[in-house]
Amino acid sequence: MTQLRAWLTADTPVSRNHARAIQAYLSWRALASNPLTMIGLLIVVALVVFATLAPMLAPQSPVAQDLTQRFIAPGTQYLFGTDEFGRDILSRILYGARVTLYIVVLVAVTAAPVGLLVGTVSGYFGGWVDAALMRITDIFLAFPRLILALAFVSALGPGIENAVLAIALTAWPPYARIARAETLTIRTSDFIAAARLQGASGFRIVVGHVVPLCSSSLIVRVTLDMAGVILTAAGLGFLGLGAQPPLAEWGAMVSSGRRYLLDYWWVATIPGLAIFVVSLGFNLLGDGLRDVLDPKSS
């Protein structure tokens, strides 16, 4: 153990991977030193675990109706109670985690790289490339997210895939903006000039030099945005435009439960709490990542 620690804090790394391991370890130490960040990370990890293990963890099928068991309050029989069709809310929350995770991952892997690429290319090459890409970005930015998503979903029809597509389409422009702003400050630096002097191509410089410096602030931003994405997805679900019944989706659950809010509070409140906790988790994690990844601090 002490040997491993010494290896991970060595002053003179002996190989490429060793250098990377040290860097990762030091970042991890910095991240771990903030308890709020750790709470955030715990929540996000829990989301992943619950989502993957949902079939094993859920006591019932999320769609199995039992009209004799309607509106049972949270208790020993049903931990989180049952809803208007007598479905077990705990199971629905667990399966709903899959939907949430699916949305979050899909948005992150589509919107972030697109925004990063558009922003860095635009910022690095400048000129007409920049003008063209930024006008497109502006067009997307001009629409409020929920409205554009609504328009999209009404055009393509409701459903979880279209909701994700709509969210991703509206999520990338701010990332492009951030990446571009960052690129503008990077592209005049001497290390970029040095790379050009070695004969590096524009593509090589963008991918190898600019992107690594922009990605940390982007990762932070994406993490912080995840709360908003979850809420938008929930909002679409709430409006009946996202996931379609009987699929368990937290927003849709809040929506259908709200009719019984006064008599059976748990039906809407528990999925609402789930949304809240997961959003909070992403926010805390994002804040912590910002402290660690901020290029100015290194």
Binding site: D190, F191, A193, Q198, A200, H209, P212, L213
Partner: peptide, 27 residues
């Protein structure tokens, strides 16, 4: 080739010395 004035600005903050020196060779 050129050497710049500011030793703080002329090396990429996220590249190891190894990478800095390997890149021109790769190019």
């Amino acid at each position: 080739q050129m050497v710049f004035q500011d030793p703080y600005g002329s090396l990429h903050p996220r590249h190891t010395v190894d990478r800095v020196l390997a890149e021109p060779l790769a190019i």
